[in-house]
Simulated assay, not measured.
Amino acid sequence: MQFLTTTSEGYISLFFTLALMLVLLYFMIYRPQKKQEKKDAAMRSSLEIGDQVTTIGGVIGRVVAIKDDTFVLETGADRVKIRFTKSAISSVEKLNMDKAPADKK
């Protein structure tokens, strides 16, 4: 009878260990990933014309047009225009009209 008690205690211990591992995985992997996805979605939805954008491919330029799930990026002095999907955005630097450079004499 002692053998059955030891085995059931072993199963209970194994169950709690697995449950603890699942909880740790949730808080260390799944939750931060969801938080980052929400942050990225907010960044993409706040995209405006004139913002400077860096794509996941490394293309840097200014947004000149926005449609449903795409935007047009103007790059360089030669003003090349390229259409991307919003999911290609890596980072956005907002156009700040409040901090216009002051005239220096």
Rank of each mutant, 00 (worst) to 15 (best):
M1R: 04
T5V: 14
T6G: 14
T6P: 09
T6V: 14
S8T: 15
E9R: 15
G10Q: 14
Y11M: 13
I12F: 09
S13M: 12
S13I: 12
L18F: 12
A19Q: 08
M21H: 04
M21N: 09
M28I: 09
Q33M: 10
Q33L: 11
K38F: 01
K39Q: 07
D40N: 11
A41H: 10
A42N: 15
S46I: 04
S46E: 03
I49D: 03
Q52T: 02
Q52E: 14
V53E: 02
V53A: 01
I56F: 02
I56N: 12
I56D: 07
G57P: 01
G57T: 05
G58W: 01
V59Y: 00
V59D: 07
V63L: 01
A65L: 09
K67T: 11
D68T: 08
D68S: 10
T70R: 11
V72T: 07
E74V: 04
T75N: 05
T75G: 12
G76A: 06
A77V: 13
A77T: 13
A77R: 12
D78T: 08
D78F: 03
K81R: 13
T85C: 04
K86E: 01
S90V: 01
S90K: 10
V92Q: 02
E93M: 05
E93A: 12
E93I: 09
K94Q: 09
N96E: 13
N96S: 11
D98V: 06
A100F: 06
A102R: 11
A102L: 15
A102I: 13
D103Q: 12
K104T: 01
K104E: 11
K104Y: 05
